[in-house]
Design a protein around this nucleic acid. Sequence first.
DNA 1: TTATAATACGGAGGAAGCCTCCACTTGACA
DNA 2: TGTCAAGTGGAGGCTTCCTCCGTATTATAA
Lengths: 195, 195
Amino acid sequence: MTSERGKKLSDEPALRADAQKNRELILSAAEELFLEKGAGVPLEEVAKRAGVGIGTLYRRFPTREALLAATSNERFLSLAETSRARDPDLTPGDAIRAYLEELARNTSTYQSLAASIGTVIQCGTPGCNAITAEGHRLLQRGQEAGTIRRDVTYEDFIYVVTAISIAMENDRSSKSRIGHLVDLFLNGINVKGSE
Amino acid sequence: MTSERGKKLSDEPALRADAQKNRELILSAAEELFLEKGAGVPLEEVAKRAGVGIGTLYRRFPTREALLAATSNERFLSLAETSRARDPDLTPGDAIRAYLEELARNTSTYQSLAASIGTVIQCGTPGCNAITAEGHRLLQRGQEAGTIRRDVTYEDFIYVVTAISIAMENDRSSKSRIGHLVDLFLNGINVKGSE
DNA sequence: TTATAATACGGAGGAAGCCTCCACTTGACA
DNA sequence: TGTCAAGTGGAGGCTTCCTCCGTATTATAA
């Protein structure tokens, strides 16, 4: 729903040592449980596994999305980094293909994350910012090269990732369909039906 | 989640008069509240507005999805009917475009319906069956005409409708983007980038 | 009609989650 | 070592879900 909370910009006053430790306990408990039971796992269960009170969890991560963004932070950073690194070797279209496939695969890491990935990705963590910036960059590059339709927006990327991730959730066996679905979209956004 | 419940096939033993009346009271209360407050409205509130007990509501509609499918029944029937009727006047691609746009618009009728439309549409009501059959028909027609890629499935239609509807919910201003997003998808599933 | 059996009703109540609030504890720093 | 801002935790209030079962109503057979 909302997404204006969970500001994780670096104007933060630096955590006290114990708080920092708890933050990390919460993050690894959350990571475990999201993997085991999906993004909808009761937050009380996360707090319990982390060995902290529920109040502590909520103070640090005011929303579930903030916690999801935090546990995804490193994956997002590395995804953006990888994308930037391989960029010179690929055509604009192939770079976008790789980006979308990885983002979709990533979103399928936690069951039930799909529907909220659009919100999560706006949480303002370094990872979220990096991945968003990289997406914009790839899109712009593709459009400047004249191979991507001008009316495509970055939001379209997110919609596609959402659709694909939902598909993955409904049919676990279809991991291989990520490529197929990205393909359809790419075929759609190309200026000419190249492929 | 599950979707095996809520069988609405006509092997039902016919409702008693009072039960039939209550069923209708529930349906109109639900329709009102879904419109006012979205598909996530508390079912107890629906029961209250209908003037029946919560137990009665659950006996008639074992899941929220069953209730959603029931309130959508007539819209689905008419959507399928309309699609069938205009079919001869349109190319296969345009018929699919119209179908997807209307289904997406329809799904945006109730706020928060998007995420579960895939489940709702499998509930087995006459409307659900009609709309599913029509989608399969359109897809097959397009593929036989050679204008739609062979590797596209009906599930792809549902994923796209889901993603578009989620997009609508996240960004109220983008009602007009339905056409754009359907367009990208269609451009993608065409054998050649026709358009 | 009336009796009776199958249907249906309704809402109390237990379970689960969410999130806030605040009395108490602890770390940082002078 | 004293001070106090920062941090803690979990009780408790709230919402929603859904089941269960004693009571009530309808259909039908006699």
